[in-house]
Design a protein around this nucleic acid. Sequence first.
DNA 1: GTTATCGATGATTTCGATTACATCGGAGCG
DNA 2: CGCTCCGATGTAATCGAAATCATCGATAAC
Lengths: 335, 335
Amino acid sequence: MATIQDVARDAGVSTATVSRVFSAPELVLEPTRLKVMESVTRLGYEPNFAAKSLRTLRTEKILVTVPDISNPFFSQVIRGVEEAALAAGYSVLLGDTRHEEAREEQYAAMFRRKEADGLIFLGHRLPDVLAEMVAAKGARTPIVNGCEFRPGLAVSSAHIDNEGAAAEVVEYLYGLGHTRVGVVTGPLASPISSDRLAGVLSAAQRHGRTSALRIAVGDFSIESGVRQAGELLDEPGRPTAIFCFSDEMAMGALEAIRQRGLRCPDDVSLVGFDDIRFAQYLEPKLTTVSQPMEQIGHEVVRLLLDILADRASALQNVTLPHRLVVRASTGPPPV
Amino acid sequence: MATIQDVARDAGVSTATVSRVFSAPELVLEPTRLKVMESVTRLGYEPNFAAKSLRTLRTEKILVTVPDISNPFFSQVIRGVEEAALAAGYSVLLGDTRHEEAREEQYAAMFRRKEADGLIFLGHRLPDVLAEMVAAKGARTPIVNGCEFRPGLAVSSAHIDNEGAAAEVVEYLYGLGHTRVGVVTGPLASPISSDRLAGVLSAAQRHGRTSALRIAVGDFSIESGVRQAGELLDEPGRPTAIFCFSDEMAMGALEAIRQRGLRCPDDVSLVGFDDIRFAQYLEPKLTTVSQPMEQIGHEVVRLLLDILADRASALQNVTLPHRLVVRASTGPPPV
DNA sequence: GTTATCGATGATTTCGATTACATCGGAGCG
DNA sequence: CGCTCCGATGTAATCGAAATCATCGATAAC
């Protein structure tokens, strides 16, 4: 592959001029520019990325870590990230952490090695080395959190009002006449789960129905939905409505409901969370909380670009709008 | 951030020794190594990636382009790619092309700029600039194709026997007694679709039932499944079985079946393709062709690593095993 | 005892671009 | 007419690590 020297020699100019043709064309005379461009195309020159990066200390890459790329919720967020990043001239380095701390740290090391200009993490944990960076550089650290919001982390973030959304769901179920509500949460270590649970509890409290709540802890997977919803259904005083903290778990719950010969929503109402593309094609179509997944992706990139461009002075924790989408999986409780 | 010079000074050795501690520790005496390592940890040194990359001409990155990351089939393949790449010390640069040629070319340029050591593309198109590289360097070009197989492209690939699998499905349906079979394909420009269609046609021919076939062209999306399957169902002489070339389209077909008050499999049998995680949680559970998605990801990385390590002399087109998974969405035709 | 050999380490060049600074010729001004 | 200034371009330092080649002391061989 031709280098900038080859082009300079071929065009009879200095390397500085060739460089300027790319990075500041207004500084070079049109005839010179054309001469250079001709050599560029003839030799098939492309600036070497590593050399440029070494000199400028910029990689034009964003590292995105995600707990599970095969989860449609995350892959949709990633899609938004990718789109916004590309539009701003950045490309996306993907890290699937598989919920494992070891991998999170592996990617943290990549970031420290300056393999990316910024980091977007969609999980809830921030490896220690990165927490140190944040502690040292504060709001100027190019690290942003997506989907989750944990105040202690001291990084900017974009997410929905998880607590409010969950409360809304419970209010909605109470409004339909349900009293015994089962909840399948995600791992409680993540704010995404604990915030939603807080919303559930506060709604239950408002209605004095805390004791009629049944809580089961899942892990956002379909299988845990089958299992945990199944346990709720098998308890005496079966809930007439189940609220799962992800659509995937709701798919599992639907399976558990069917396995027991029950019908949804006639015997058990079901609510999911996320509104992944498949939610509206389930049978029955799933009532769920819609999250603006691509928008979260866009927003999180915007926050990061602000930091990278030194436009961000303070932390920003952006709350994006959610929406309860009522479909066919919910109805009044059986009489 | 500390540089190699800082460490060398701090440890009282030359930069060469520090470098060796990382890249060839067996060449340096244990006491020296420990002394260096101590400085490394004290200063929090991490080798600068761009500098290393410039010198070695390697990026330890694999660029993966995919037509749609939010498609569970692709995200599962990506998962396999990511895993295998990480295990080999590579990280993954993700490119979502959204089926758009412009984006494919944008990523092709990245590859030419040497932002990645190798390219895995999961679509069916190879941008011209890359085709030129392949033409020039032959089987040593670090470009590999996943999921699809187009002989003309002259790159190694990993995929299933799409033609055989599709033929198998049709044979299975004929075996159940179906005679009028509808097929919803993907875009015929991609071998993934045309190969499967070829399989369908050859099976139909063997049974002399070509004229009873109904073909509709979809685009792999749920919505196109609803639409195209709907059209097949509305034609006179409604098919008693529908074969969709993706599970997502089968989900759409299921919706179309329900919209018409028909039941699956009693009135219409349904077969999908891919066996995405959700297939077995649909109602009815979907009969489909299982593709080893993560394995395709692993294999494609292996092929690429072979090329990068200069172990690959000839093109390899690896066919991985598929499996027809019979579930509840298929049965004998109505009497 | 001299020399070839080898293992450990250091000095220096190199990778390919960016960029601060230098240069040079011509326009503008008094 | 001479000086300043400016626009266009060139020169050369620089980014941080890797790798080649040089060095030096010690050991082994004869």
